[in-house]
Each structure stands twice: as C-alpha cells, then as structure tokens.
Amino acid sequence: MASTAAKSGGGLIARFRSRIPETTRRDNIAGWLFIAPVLLWITVFTAYPLISSLFLSFREWDPLFTDKYVGLANYAELMEDKIFLLAYRNALVYAAITIPLGLVWGMSVALAVQHIRGRAFFRALYFLPTVTSSVAIAVVWSFAYNQDYGLVNSLLRYVGVQGPNWLGHTQWALLSISLVVVWAGTGFWMIVFLAGLLDIPQEYYDAAKVDGATGWQSLWRITLPLMSPTIFYYITNALITVWIQFEIPFVMTGGGPANATLMPALLLYDEAWDRFKMGYASAMAWVMALVIFVITALHFSLSRRWVNYDR
C-alpha cells in the first residue's frame, strides 16, 4: 500500500516533470543563478535599506544610545522645522533658476552647434564638465567666485563692473551655485538634445521652406513640438535632481551663508552624520521621496497635454 502511494507520488512528479522539457528546467536554474549576484546586491543595498529606512523614520534612533518608537512624531516635527522648510524653499528657488535656464541654454547650444563646422570639437569641449567630478568643479568655482582675485570678478573688471562677494553674500550665493550647476550640465544636455534633433526628418524642414516658412517658424512649429519627448525627459530628470543636489553646495558653501544655500540633501546629511539623528533624517528622506513622487506624477499627468509622440 505504502509502496503504491510512493510509486504513484513518484509517478506524479515524473509526469509533471516530463511536461517540462529538460532544457527548460536547466534554463530556469541557470537564469536564476545568473541573476543571483545582482539580487543579493539589491536585497542588501536597496530592498532591505528601503524598508529599514521606513521603520527608522518612525523612531528616535541613533547608532549608539537611543532607540524609541515615536510614531509620526518625526514627520510632525519636520513640518514645524523652520530650517527644513527653508531648505525646500531654497530648493524651489534653485529649481526656478536651473530648470528653465538649463533648458534654454542647452537647447540653444544644441541648435547652434548642429550645423556648424567643428561640431565634434565643440561637443567634446562642452562635455568636459560632465566627466569632471562635482567636487573638482566646486573647488575651482569656489576660487573663481572669490571677490578679489576670482576669475568671475576679474572678467567683470574688464568691463568696469565691481562684482559682489558671490558666495559670501546671502543675496548672491544661491544664484552663484545655480549657475555652476547649469554650467556643469550644459554639455550633457546638449548631447541629449542633439540626439533628439537628429531624429527629426529633414523633409519636414524642406516642406516648410517650400511653403515659405521662416527659420523662426520652423523652430516653433516643427523643432520644438517634435522635441517635446526630449524636453519632457529633461524636465523629469531636473525635477528629481533638484531635491537631491548635494556636492556643489556642500563644497562651495556648506549651506551658508546664514543657510542661504541649504538644500534638503545637505540638511539630511547633517542630521544623520553630524547630529546622529538618524530616525529624524530618515523621515526627511521619506519626505524627499514623497515630494519627488508627487511632482513626478503630476508632471507625467500634465505631459499628455504637451508631449507629442507621433512623428
């Protein structure tokens, strides 16, 4: 009796197995083994930290002494934290400067460089800051912004203007940093925009010319509408990077003067590693994620009105 049960059980498995070809079974094992290392990395450095950080955000926590469940208290505290709100206000100003300026400047350069001689040279030159570390860029620019001997004010002196103390003055510091970020990003976006421009069929322009359209009309009626997916990508990316900017202000101003250049990520770092308030900092991180998520979702839903995918 027992032996028949075992036999029929074995038969069942054998029958089940026989339905899957041998190669398929081997492929299943091989496939999972090949992705196993990446899964290990994702589990340890992405998935576990993601969950862990959510739990931390509900606690008052530091690595040595404190561990207490506080519910939503961290989040409540954040909403009344003047410095935290200031960091987001600064990020908004920074976004208002860098996003339009980066788009207009990057697009202008891409349009201008498109048909000129020496295109490859200029493309390579503009791209140089993209391969340079943000720290190196920030160090060079923090000297270039020096009030007395810096590059910027020296150039301004040629035209008879006495430049301000760019990084030392609350009125100028955030603008100065924003300009460096636009400067550093131009080459990358120029390449992306150029790729978009090359995708537009030349026939459209030829047809427009036959109909007597000016270059200006072609730009607004052909180029920009057909570039809308690329512009959409630029804005998506910009709306994310605005909230996570760290290196440039960290090196150039450390958030000063008087918190004029304090950014969300800078404050998060300070809370977590200077004051070791890691629970509070985790709550900051989740607010940051939420802000990014909401803005991105909004941007995507609005995109249907202006992004044109049919070529």
Binding site: L50, S52, M288, A289
Partner: peptide, 17 residues
Amino acid sequence: ATIMIPWWVTLIPAYLV
C-alpha cells in the same frame, strides 16, 4: 524599477549595513 528610488532614502540603512 529600483532606479526610481532616490538614493538618499536608502543611504542611512546602507551605511548601517
């Protein structure tokens, strides 16, 4: 999809790991 996670969110626990 994990690209979409802002890495400041995972930074503190990754440091703790």
